[in-house]
């Protein structure tokens, strides 16, 4: 028996909105630790890694490890039926081929349930090695989304370069070039508005705008985003999901032929 209850169903809906551009279908691995998902986009350039801890749920029960393959478009349809303030309860029997989502309104005056068919998906789990990153940038997630959106107009790629002075985002293309520089600004009163850089050594890497733009669909999940970079290693873009876990995106850098 698997059962997970989340008072803020909108959090799960935001997670879904954040990954549905990259993934058509994915397997949710349920265990007593919580719900995990790891999947590559169809071009195998980026990797999505979701971790929702069991103790972040309002109720969590998982008697037997369970892998639920889901079509994310279908799952999106189910969550479209939920109200913004609804509580969601996910339920599946052991070895079941369906999962049930029950939505309850705040006042308990409306209860709806939707049963969705599960899929058997080929699972390919990648081992992500521990990396000592050259730099770790934390910045407001809205600012990151804005910069990626703005610079995407100039070219297909964005160079992110980080030094002790700050972080610079650059793009160039047919119409010209664009550069955005951010200095470190520690705001002790409003931590979420700070830009902080933890630098071991300067690094500059190039990434495809298309993927960076997709990652920023996770902006509603978190005030801050964490970018971890190291030469010849995929970029990690991490959004903390308050009290529940995190959503990470990994993106292979563009390199010279």
């Amino acid at each position: 028996m698997f059962e997970a209850r989340l008072v803020n169903s909108s959090t799960f809906r935001k997670v879904l909105d954040a990954i549905k551009d990259l993934l058509n279908e994915a397997s949710f691995d349920c265990s007593e630790n919580g719900i995990q998902l790891q999947a590559m986009d169809s071009s195998h350039v980026s990797l999505v890694s979701l971790n929702l801890k069991s103790d972040g749920f309002d109720k969590f029960r998982c008697d037997r490890n369970l892998t639920m393959g889901m079509n994310l478009t279908s799952l999106g349809k189910v969550f479209k039926c939920s109200g913004a303030d609804d509580t969601v309860t996910m339920k599946a029997q052991d070895y079941a081929d369906t999962v049930t989502f029950m939505f309850e309104s705040k006042k308990q005056d409306k209860i709806s349930d939707y049963e969705m068919k599960l899929m058997n998906l080929d699972q390919e789990h990648l081992g992500i090695p521990d990396t000592e990153f050259s730099c770790i940038i934390k910045m407001p997630s809205i600012e990151f989304a804005r910069i990626i959106r703005d610079l995407s107009q100039f070219g297909e790629s964005i160079v992110i370069s980080c030094t002790k002075e700050g972080v610079k985002f650059s793009a160039q293309g047919d119409i010209g070039t664009g550069n955005v520089k951010l200095a470190q600004t520690h705001n002790f009163d409003k931590e979420e508005e700070s830009v902080t850089i933890d630098l071991q050594e300067p690094v500059a890497l190039t990434f495809a705008c298309q993927y960076l733009n997709s990652f920023t669909k996770a902006t509603p999940l978190s005030n801050q985003v964490k970018l971890s970079m190291c030469e010849n290693v995929p970029l990690v873009v991490e959004y903390q999901i308050p009290e529940l876990g995190h959503l990470r995106f990994y993106l292979a850098p563009k390199i010279e032929e």
Binding site: M40, H44, V45, S46, L47, E124, H125, L126, G127, I128, P129, S157, T206, A208, V233, P234, Y250, L251, A252, P253, K254, I255, E256, E257
Partner: peptide
Amino acid sequence: SKHQKSIRDYFKTN
């Protein structure tokens, strides 16, 4: 020009 490797080239299959 720049080229993009697969994420699989960085993270090996378990």
